[in-house]
């Protein structure tokens, strides 16, 4: 059988970020990371803040992208990730992220309503995951 690939697509509300055939992708699912190889069983999952690793050319990670959450749809031929926000790991500015995290933490402390607090706390979560991803990559 000819070598199969997964059609991987990463879309954010603004645009289609990535669309290519790859060997494997590892997606940070809501219940833990999962890898998608060709002929994966159909599945729909939530995505938690974390890093998507794209594998091309057998076992070599070709791209790492940070996503701040979203959804993934997997079919035997395709893997589609609907991200809230996404950016390549190497493009993340560490200092800016740390600053944003600090601000977000202050927002949690200053939040007046339950809703504001929840929003800010979510933001903190995302940013912590982003920093975590950064320190792990380096």
């Amino acid at each position: 059988m000819a070598e199969q690939k997964v059609e991987f697509e990463l879309v954010s509300p603004e645009k289609l970020l990535l669309s290519q055939a790859v060997d494997m992708v590892v997606v940070p699912g809501g219940d833990g990371d999962f890898g998608v190889l060709p002929r994966h069983a159909p599945m729909i999952s939530t995505v938690r803040p974390g890093v998507i690793s794209v594998y091309e050319e057998r076992r070599a990670v070709s791209q790492r992208l940070f996503v701040s959450g979203g959804f993934a749809e997997v079919t035997p031929e395709r893997c589609t990730v609907l991200a809230v926000e996404a950016e390549p790991l190497e493009e993340i500015d560490r200092a800016a992220t740390e600053q944003a995290l600090k601000n977000a933490r202050e927002d949690v402390a200053d939040a007046k309503s339950e809703h504001d607090k929840a929003v800010a706390a979510k933001r903190v979560n995302v940013l912590e995951a982003k920093l975590d991803a950064l320190s792990r990559a380096n």
């Binding site: 999962f34 069983a41 599945m43 729909i44 999952s45 939530t46 959804f71 079919t75």
Partner: peptide, 27 residues
């Protein structure tokens, strides 16, 4: 093609729907 497909849901249908529906509204 999608019609005949049965999806697995992770964590489960309700959780996904509860997140997906509000998000869909914004989209």
């Amino acid at each position: 093609e999608n019609k005949g497909m049965v999806y697995d849901y992770e964590p489960d249908e309700e959780t996904i729907l509860a997140e997906l529906l509000p998000r869909n509204l914004a989209v």
